[in-house]
Each structure stands twice: as structure tokens, then as C-alpha cells.
């Protein structure tokens, strides 16, 4: 089978131009790098490392558009009980002493050295070449050791049977799941649902892009502003960074 004859570079340019026009939100600052779709038959490449930069100063404590968008995209039930899955959640913080308030979205941090992958007995937890940490649910036996090992409480266990699941990522009872960074969208050249929803709300608090490309918007911004990785003391090199905490 042959790929379409359009060279990736040209595809990049035409898509890029359209997106630049649509999404330039401030001079010199792109909301996200447009991601170009990988041609069919080509595996994810380690030349790319997907990541996010979350500007907590732009995140509104009353807004949960990212959470709702994720739930819709992945057809997750509305969380009521502690057994219900939450791939992304809003965390409200108050600094001890000063009382400064911060609101931010929390999800799988897509570590470069993910503890969940280290501990998984069957290799069901794995990191894709482009840095996205996933669960291969065909191989997951549901031991929950990864949930014990994750410092971010990013994972959920499917506590109930799933019937007629319509979400983009298949999910089933007795396996562990978490944020996929919307891998199905990223592979199509789109951005994750939460990033899109945040931009639609006008907050533009989440910047998504390729950390391995020094010219990407996310890399440029990481160079120019102070940012933090959560539990930086563990040295896991998370793919998600935060501003303003």
C-alpha cells in the first residue's frame, strides 16, 4: 500500500497556514503546534515527544470544560462514586500560609520514566515512541500495581462491566485506564479534546505540542517562562509542565 503522494512537508505547510491564521492568539504566540497526521502504516516516532504546558494563571476555578470534553470524547460516565473513572480532573489548591488560590487540570503526566511502566508485571503499561504513556488493555490483568506506583493518582480501574462503549478508546471491566493524551486524535493530526475545549472557552490555558522540536510553540514558551513539573523531586521527567505554581 502506498501513502498519498503529498510530501509531509507540504502537508505541514498547508495545514500549518490554516491553523496559524485560526489560532494565533497573541503576537508571536501560537496556541498549539498543529500536529500533522502520520501517514498510514508509519509507527509513532521517537523524534517526537508530545507534551503539555498548563498555565494555571489562565485556568478558571469555575471552569471544567476540559473535564467535560474528555468525558464526552472517551464516553466516560459522570463521576459520582470513588469507583468511577476520572482521566482528567480539576484540582483546587490553596497555598498554606499565604492562602493564594490556584486551579488546575490534573491528568496522566506522561513521564519519560514512568513508574507505572516499571512496575507492570505484564508490560501492559507502556510508553509509546512519541512519549505517550498508555495501557494495553489486551494485556492488563487488573493487578492495580501501576495505580500504587503512580505519584499523580492519574489512573482509574474499571470497576464495572462496560456495555456498548462508544468512546474513541475501547475500555473494559477489570483493566486499568488513564488519559491517553487523545492518542487517536493526535495520530490524526488533531489536538487532545481537553486542549481544544479549553481554547474554545477562551482560556487557552493548555499548550500542546512537540517537546523535541526546539521551534515548537511549547518549547519556545518553556524556554521563556518559569514552569514546574509536579513531583520534580522524583526525577520522572513528566511530559506535562505547569506555570504559576
Amino acid at each position: 500500500m502506498t501513502a498519498p503522494a503529498v510530501p509531509p512537508r507540504r502537508q505541514f505547510l498547508s495545514q500549518g497556514a490554516a491553523l496559524t491564521a485560526a489560532l494565533a492568539i497573541a503576537p508571536g504566540l501560537l496556541l498549539y503546534d498543529f500536529a500533522r497526521a502520520r501517514p498510514p502504516g508509519e509507527p509513532a516516532s521517537s523524534a517526537v515527544r508530545w507534551g503539555m504546558l498548563i498555565d494555571t494563571t489562565q485556568c478558571d476555578s469555575g471552569c471544567s470544560a476540559c473535564v467535560t470534553a474528555c468525558r464526552k470524547e472517551n464516553a466516560l460516565p459522570e463521576p459520582v462514586r470513588l469507583t468511577d473513572p476520572q482521566w482528567i480532573r480539576k484540582v483546587e489548591l490553596e497555598q498554606e500560609g499565604s492562602g493564594r488560590k490556584v486551579s488546575l487540570p490534573m491528568m496522566c503526566q506522561h513521564c519519560a520514566d514512568p513508574p507505572c511502566v516499571d512496575v507492570c508485571p505484564t508490560g501492559a503499561s507502556f510508553k509509546r515512541a512519541d512519549g505517550i504513556v498508555l495501557v494495553d488493555k489486551h494485556r492488563c490483568i487488573g493487578c492495580r500495581y501501576c495505580m500504587m506506583a503512580c505519584p499523580y493518582k492519574a489512573r482509574s480501574f474499571v470497576h464495572e462491566p462496560v456495555t456498548d462503549h462508544s468512546g474513541a478508546t475501547p475500555r473494559g471491566q477489570g483493566t486499568v485506564e488513564s488519559c491517553t493524551l487523545c492518542v487517536h486524535r493526535v495520530d490524526r493530526g488533531e489536538i487532545p479534546a481537553c486542549v481544544e475545549a479549553c481554547a474554545r472557552e477562551g482560556h487557552q490555558a493548555i499548550l500542546f505540542g512537540n517537546l523535541n522540536d526546539p521551534d515548537s510553540a511549547i518549547s519556545r514558551r518553556l524556554r521563556s517562562v518559569a514552569s514546574t513539573r509536579l513531583r520534580a523531586d522524583l526525577n520522572l521527567d513528566p511530559g506535562v509542565a505547569y506555570e504559576g505554581i
Binding site: 507492570c120 505484564t122 492488563c140 493487578c143 492495580r144
Partner: peptide
């Protein structure tokens, strides 16, 4: 207690060398 006790054979056939759980098997 596993979420998928039917797949216990996976734990016996596929090893992740960095997993303490796999060593324990």
C-alpha cells in the same frame, strides 16, 4: 482478586523484567 483473573496466563507468559511483581511470579 485480579480485575481479569481469566488472563492470569498472561502474567505467567509475558514478563516485564523491571517489574518486582514479575520477579515475584
Amino acid at each position: 482478586d485480579l480485575g481479569r483473573p481469566d488472563r492470569v496466563i498472561v502474567a505467567a507468559t509475558v514478563y516485564n523484567a523491571t517489574s518486582v511483581f514479575a520477579w515475584n511470579v
